[in-house]
Design a protein around this nucleic acid. Structure first.
Lengths: 224, 224
DNA sequence: GTCAAGAATTTTGTATACAAATTTGACTTC
DNA sequence: GAAGTCAAATTTGTATACAAAATTCTTGAC
């Protein structure tokens, strides 16, 4: 019972979301300080709810809150990014390991359906549609881990890495490869092979080899 | 650069820590509402920093913040607890997998030293000392994963589960068994066997078989 | 010209005051 | 007597005012 989709009209919520977007978008540069008075006024609220929003973002790691100094946006650097992907890979592997034993038939159908739409998106050459279905694919696996806590944590990290994962798909041939990996993952889940599911999901998410260079390249371009 | 041990004198920090303790200790019952005005006064501060503290605790999952209703302490129930231990086991397994390849010789010595002190604690029949060294053992492995992000996440969850892990050690024979598992883990790390390290750490942390019943029993007694 | 010390200014942290929303209780009605 | 409705009273959410800390700018000495 986690305040299911109730439309909260709290200013703090709205601002936290907005700031999150602006940080993801790169509107705010990396070390930039978020001026409380200026931005609060810009959002049309007082400092109190604005600071609440900052508090939350600091716990998500998007801003660093230095005592008596202010809030600074904190984009992950190359090292931290690699680390986060490493953890993401392990989390997805864990989800896959559990899901192999716990997934429902309906969910398997949903995965297959998502993959079909993925393939259609590739044929249309539509990376956005592909990304949307890819997202759905992974969310299903999180949920089917049968572990709500794990699903939540995986979702959190996924959200944080979203812009970077998205970027990765724009590289030539990656969508097709990703597609094949998806199908191998479903196959492992269908046959209930926990280790294979874990291994394939880890490999699917892990940033290694060519993917590593591509990530670094995208980082460099983002920095300019 | 995450504000390393700097002694912050912010009220919000102090109160967040204090509340955390009180919730862990079970001073606050499960669904209990945390009255802002009463508790803020009790802590000798105004509502503003007190609410900041609540915000943080809500993001750690220790309290649920219902809009326009208040803050309610949220002790994990049996299901969530099992789920959290499941994730903890996977995280430690991941730490072990990485550490097997990345651990330093000094850290291996530290692990052996911690184990020696563990054994001494058992001989003295001192569960508190054992727990302290056990904690150290695991923290070393987190750090030696060579992944600061993973180490941080593992540490967070470890902290959250601390009271329950501690309780587990009080059961007859568990310390000795835990000790053996520690040594098997070190052995795997020494030989650089990533899969063995992961497997053994997962098994060490996982709550299954007899441990499950014990956890349930301790929960029941805590509820009364 | 550079560096240091200190005052002025800016900015964060906290307290208080006010507004909005929810809960509670009384009163009415069936 | 029970249920519904409306008003009073809490209680949360937000704005503003004040205090404390840090930064910046000025001023003076070497």
């Amino acid at each position: 019972m986690v305040n299911g989709g109730k439309m909260t009209k709290r200013h703090a919520d709205r601002i936290a979301k907005a700031l999150e977007e602006l940080i993801f978008d790169g509107t705010f540069a990396n070390g930039e300080r978020l001026d409380e008075v200026r931005l609060a006024e810009q959002f049309g609220v007082s400092r109190t709810p604005f600071r609440e929003a900052l508090q939350r973002l600091s716990l998500s790691g998007l801003v660093e809150l230095v005592p008596h100094r202010g809030a600074f946006v904190r984009q992950p650097g190359p090292v931290e990014l690699i680390e986060m992907f490493e953890v993401m890979a392990e989390m997805e592997a864990a989800c896959g390991r559990f899901a192999a034993m716990r997934i429902s038939d309906e969910a398997l159908d949903d995965l297959r359906a998502a993959n079909v739409r993925c393939r259609e998106a590739i044929e249309r050459g539509d990376p956005d549609a592909y990304y949307a279905e890819n997202e759905r694919f992974h969310q299903i696996i999180y949920a089917q881990s049968g572990n709500a806590f794990l699903a939540q944590e995986a979702g959190r990290l996924h959200k944080r890495l979203r812009p970077f994962r998205r970027q990765q798909l724009r590289f030539r041939g990656r969508m097709a490869q990703s597609m094949e990996e998806h199908e191998a993952i479903v196959e492992a889940l269908v046959s209930g092979d926990a280790e294979a599911a874990a291994l394939r999901l880890r490999g699917h998410v892990a940033v290694q080899g060519e993917k590593f260079h591509r990530l670094m390249a995208s980082l460099r371009s983002a920095a300019e």
